[in-house]
Amino acid sequence: MTSSLPPFVDIEWCEDRPREIVMADVRWYLDGASGRSAYEAGHIPGAVFMDLDRWLSAEPSREAGRNPLPDPEVFAEGMRNAGISDADTVVAYDDAGGVIAARLVWMLRSTGHQAALLNGGLAAYTGELETHQRARQPGRFTATPWPFQLLASIQDTAPGQGKIVVDARNRDRYEGRQDPIDPRLGHIPQAINLPCRENLDPSGKLLAKELLHSKVAGVGILSANDVISYCGSRRHRLPQRAGPGTSRPGQGAPLRRRVVPVWARHPTAGGNRLKKTAGPTSFFPISPSGTSVP
């Protein structure tokens, strides 16, 4: 379950190998606007549209959260319908800083496929957009069980488990100042805040590697080992995975980070406990060996 492809690639990299990759448009909007309509209004030439609600998520429930992983066969069917096969290299994009397309990238990389996020998203492409969908032959994509060794349980986030828990949501949601989605405000107790959107520059591209490493180390993370990350509903964690010790921002991180079943499923969000702060972010101290010290 490894990928030689870094999790972020630039548009120039894509333009140099148009016949070697499949571009996937994964636009989706929290306010209910149609991602498909946005795709039909204009997309990167040759890109296929991936419907997040239909193929990348299962039905929400109190037990599973707001956007649980779909059945592997459902995911495989969506890939086949889009003309994507096991051997294809997929580059996904959105217009939201990568926080939506990151879901598809994680799902593919975690099951052993070659996939990356387009650095800068749709805005990185400066050519004329396409408004029609090119026909593709159905793909040959094999359903693969989700690698549960890469997934963390709610219990894994409890104090004393030796894990560093990272909340990738915006600071106002983490601090409990407002939340447009979840009924309770705040964050998982002892979680640190590393907002994924703050890892991008004004153009929507990743910050320089050195700055990303400094930001991660600044909140006490010296290794990607024993890090559990979460967002509001499992959609947007990849853009904040740029940990120390990588040759490129984020390289290898998606397969070393463990993913918790998100804030929407945590007991706190349901009304049992609440951690709310408007002050500085706290974090676990790190021992010289790089392991977390609760």
Rank of each mutant, 00 (worst) to 15 (best):
Q114R: 15
D179P: 00
P147G: 14
S203R: 15
Q161F: 06
G162D: 06
A124D: 13
H213L: 11
G121H: 14
G176N: 05
V166S: 13
A168I: 02
N119T: 14
A158S: 11
T131E: 13
K209V: 01
R169N: 02
A143D: 11
H213V: 05
V165S: 01
Y174S: 00
G204D: 09
S203L: 08
Q190I: 01
G186M: 08
A124Q: 14
A158I: 10
N119L: 14
Y125R: 10
L108A: 02
T131P: 04
L150V: 07
P202K: 07
A208H: 13
L206E: 06
E175H: 09
V166K: 11
Q133C: 12
Q137A: 15
P159W: 03
A168P: 03
V165H: 05
T142E: 12
R197T: 12
T131M: 05
D156K: 10
R134C: 12
H113K: 08
L206I: 08
G112V: 03
R169V: 06
H213C: 09
E130Y: 08
V166E: 13
Y174Q: 03
D182E: 04
Y125I: 01
P202F: 03
A158N: 12
I154N: 08
A152M: 12
A158G: 07
R136A: 05
I181M: 10
L129T: 12
I192A: 14
Q149D: 15
D167K: 03
D167R: 01
H187N: 03
E128L: 14
Q178G: 02
A135I: 08
Q178D: 14
A143G: 08
V165Q: 02
F141W: 03
L108S: 03
L200M: 08
A124M: 15
R109F: 02
F148S: 11
S203I: 05
K205A: 15
H113M: 05
P138A: 06
H213N: 10
Q161R: 15
G139E: 01
T131F: 00
D201T: 15
G160A: 12
D167W: 07
A115N: 08
G127D: 10
Q133E: 09
S214G: 01
D182G: 01
L194S: 04
A143W: 05
T111Q: 06
G120L: 09
D201W: 06
Q149S: 14
A143M: 10
R109N: 03
P147Y: 11
K205I: 09
